[in-house]
């Protein structure tokens, strides 16, 4: 049978800040399979509303498989109402994961906007073992929407925050934090967040001759590269976010 489709029991589903939630699934068989940057395609309701599954980046896969999500519509609201002990139908892990930085890299900068911080914890779980200097630049709407940074700090990340309203950290988009990147050592970027932010990171990377990877978000139907509904424009033509991505070379994406 189609082995990437399973029902998993919810261990926890808690609000962590503002409209941000963390869902933990009891999925011991999955934990070993998950690679950083991959996602779970979750059926938030057994009925027809909402009709399609919802894709969520995997935040961490240690004891449980965790996703971090923001309530942005009816589907994510329904997910937030699910209780411990309920089971959810998932496809996953899906998608092309992050790859490690090139050999000479000493410093890794993660640039996240809003819930776009989600795929980076699993990545730092790997990167922390390789002695990189890790920096997280994190932008959010306001202090209330800031996801707790404890896990990232424990993984050795130096965290800098910016908020749209300046309620915590620097005021403005995450791009106001770009000067925090000291370029005295070979640097590599990973970024995830709203498309305008990613475009901004791409422009910055081009100007400073930096390389990196970006994780994209898109509305999806199948989640496995069959329907071609979530395609995105790249320098190599249309590519599916679900299967060719969600991780792409930062310079390949056409905004």
């Amino acid at each position: 049978m189609i082995d990437f489709q399973q029902k998993y029991t919810i261990v926890a589903n808690k609000k962590v800040a503002g409209t941000l939630y963390q869902l933990s699934l009891d999925a011991p068989t999955l934990v070993r399979k998950v690679l950083p940057g991959q996602f779970m395609h979750i059926r938030v309701n057994d009925g027809l509303k909402p009709f399609l599954r919802r894709p969520f980046s995997i935040y961490r896969a240690l004891k449980t498989v965790d996703i971090l999500y923001d309530i942005v519509g009816a589907g994510t609201r329904m997910l937030s109402e699910k209780k411990k002990g309920e089971r959810v139908d998932c496809l996953g892990p899906l998608g092309t994961p992050f790859t490690l930085p090139p050999k000479n890299v000493k410093q890794v900068v993660l640039i996240a906007g809003g819930v776009g911080v989600a795929p980076f914890l699993a990545l730092t779980d790997i990167l922390k073992k390789k002695n990189y200097k890790l920096i997280l630049l994190y932008g959010a709407r306001s202090k209330a929407q800031i996801f707790p940074m404890k896990d990232f700090k424990e993984n050795g990340c130096q965290v800098h925050v910016a908020t749209d309203d300046g309620s915590i950290g620097a005021k403005g988009w995450v791009s106001v934090l770009f000067p925090k990147i000291k370029r005295d050592m070979s640097t590599y970027l990973y970024t995830c967040g709203p498309r305008p932010m990613l475009a901004c990171v791409q422009a910055f990377a081009k100007e400073k001759h930096l390389e990196g990877q970006a994780s994209l978000e898109e509305v999806m139907a199948c989640g496995v590269g069959a329907c071609l509904g979530c395609s995105t424009k790249t320098t190599h033509g249309y590519k599916t976010v679900c299967h060719d991505g969600p991780v792409f070379d930062l310079s390949d994406i056409i905004f």
Binding site: K49, F51, V219, M220, A221, C227, G229, S231, G237, Y238
Partner: peptide
């Protein structure tokens, strides 16, 4: 190469595609 993006939208009990 297919149609310009976006190509799908979810609707009540269904979806519209223009792949």
């Amino acid at each position: 190469v297919g149609n310009p993006l976006p190509r799908i939208v979810e609707t009540a009990s269904g979806m519209i595609n223009a792949i």
